[in-house]
Design a protein around this nucleic acid. Structure first.
Length: 399
DNA sequence: GAACAGCCTCTTGG
DNA sequence: ACCAAGAGGCTGT
């Protein structure tokens, strides 16, 4: 039982920021949705330490927020400033639509932004999250990002019965995790990428934190060079690199091209890569060996065209177009697997490979009896896997 | 450089 | 019931 939080309010309309469309649609993966309360909670590094941050959108023109510190303290003077940046409240969607996108692209006559914004997320967490995203669906990416925190992060506190952990630093990952333990947790072939990336960045960052190090690239380097460095991490190709630039480094004009955006480009815009386009890019990437190796020129031409068409906030336009294209797709989770997942999180592990293996084996054995118990206790907390189809899509969660 | 199989795991459609 | 295909890609040949 936690006492009621004191929420404060930011005046901001749902047209400009719609929490569901921003926190559960494949950009951020570590928000927990509390169904009964209508709250979202996660841990975020506010100032120099992690806090539990809670937000909700019960009224149309207001975002309510509160936070909890490790010691249970609710007050955090820096929180308003943090959220203002996290949600990029200085960027006016409605104005961009009128003065930029509508002028440049008639497609936007039939689109409303629906409060889809690009967040200013922590660069290191964004990098790890999108390494997990390759050939994957939102439900499982969400599960994996929560696993990183609960297994290898530090306990920050509890909210509404849910334990909240920090997102682990590269050092914490190299010390506490291993490829094998990540595989047992369901990371598949991405386990190797995560460990290799953690080791590499820990070695490179020197006195800076993981995120300060990534952020520092922006001070001295242009987009192409930043992407080149980003793709020097194992498991990071052009699409993942662009996602980290956009959502982790606030590079608002970067357009990540995935299969959906590529399909839209060909179907609706008739973008096609000519010999000339490809040769221009090849010239531009002359000094960038990793880019030359990893980039797909067909897709890179599409990326470049969209950036020209949509302008300085092309990445935001991409987010809106993407949301409207696939807003409600794929990977619906059945209730029984949802219960099983809740169990997986309920079984507390300490990050040792052997214990992890034992857990994996035991899960099947305890399922039947334990599931009934879980149902009795009632499921109150959900990590949202996907938009729209609420009951089917939510991954249940608890402790 | 381009093309293609293979990769972990889960879900859905046939 | 079962299997193939695909999921907001990347790596290695």
């Amino acid at each position: 039982m936690s006492k009621l939080l004191e929420f404060k309010c930011i005046k901001f309309t749902a047209d400009e920021l719609h929490l569901e469309n921003v926190l559960q649609c494949g950009q951020a993966f570590r928000w927990v949705f509390h169904e009964k309360l209508g709250h979202y909670s996660t841990t975020l590094k506010v100032g120099d330490r992690f806090r539990i941050v809670v937000v909700k959108q019960s009224e149309k023109d207001c975002i309510q927020y509160a936070s909890l510190g490790k010691d249970g303290s609710e007050e955090c003077a820096a929180l308003y400033g943090f959220l203002k940046r996290y949600f990029r409240l200085e960027v006016p969607l409605g104005t961009l639509l009128k003065t930029e996108w509508l002028m440049r692209d008639s497609r936007f006559k039939h689109i409303s932004p629906k409060g889809v914004r690009i967040l200013a997320q922590d660069p290191w967490e964004t990098l790890c999250s999108f390494i997990c995203s390759s050939n994957n669906n939102i439900a499982r990416i969400t599960k994996m990002c929560h696993a990183l925190s609960t297994e290898f992060g530090n306990l920050v506190g509890h909210y509404d019965g849910v334990d909240h952990y920090s997102f682990p630093t590269s050092r914490e990952l190299t010390q506490r995790a291993s490829e094998e333990s990540l595989r047992v947790l369901g990371f598949g072939y991405r386990a190797k990428y995560i460990m290799a990336t953690a080791k590499k960045i820990e070695h490179e960052r020197l006195h800076l934190s993981d995120s300060e190090y990534l952020q520092s690239w922006k001070d001295n380097l242009e987009y192409e060079q930043i992407r080149e460095k980003m793709m020097s991490f194992h498991g990071v190709g052009p699409k993942v690199a662009d996602c980290v630039c956009l959502s982790g480094l606030q590079m608002d004009d970067v357009v990540p091209v995935d299969v959906h955006i590529a399909r839209i480009a060909q179907r609706d815009y008739k973008f096609s890569a000519g010999k000339q386009d490809i040769m221009e890019l090849q010239t531009r990437y002359r000094e960038l060996p990793i880019t030359r190796k990893k980039v797909n020129y067909e897709l890179d031409v599409i990326r470049s065209r969209f950036k020209e068409k949509w302008g300085n906030f092309a990445g935001w336009a991409q987010g809106i177009v993407f949301a409207q294209e696939v807003g409600k797709t794929s990977g619906a989770t059945s209730e029984s697997t949802a219960i099983k997942r809740r169990l997986e999180f309920a079984v507390k592990i300490e990050g040792q490979e052997q214990q992890l293996l034992v857990k994996k084996q035991n899960l099947d054995m305890i399922s039947t009896s334990a599931i009934e118990k879980v149902v009795e206790e009632k499921i109150e907390y959900t990590i949202t896997g996907r938009p729209k189809r609420k009951t089917a899509s939510n991954v249940t969660y608890g402790s």
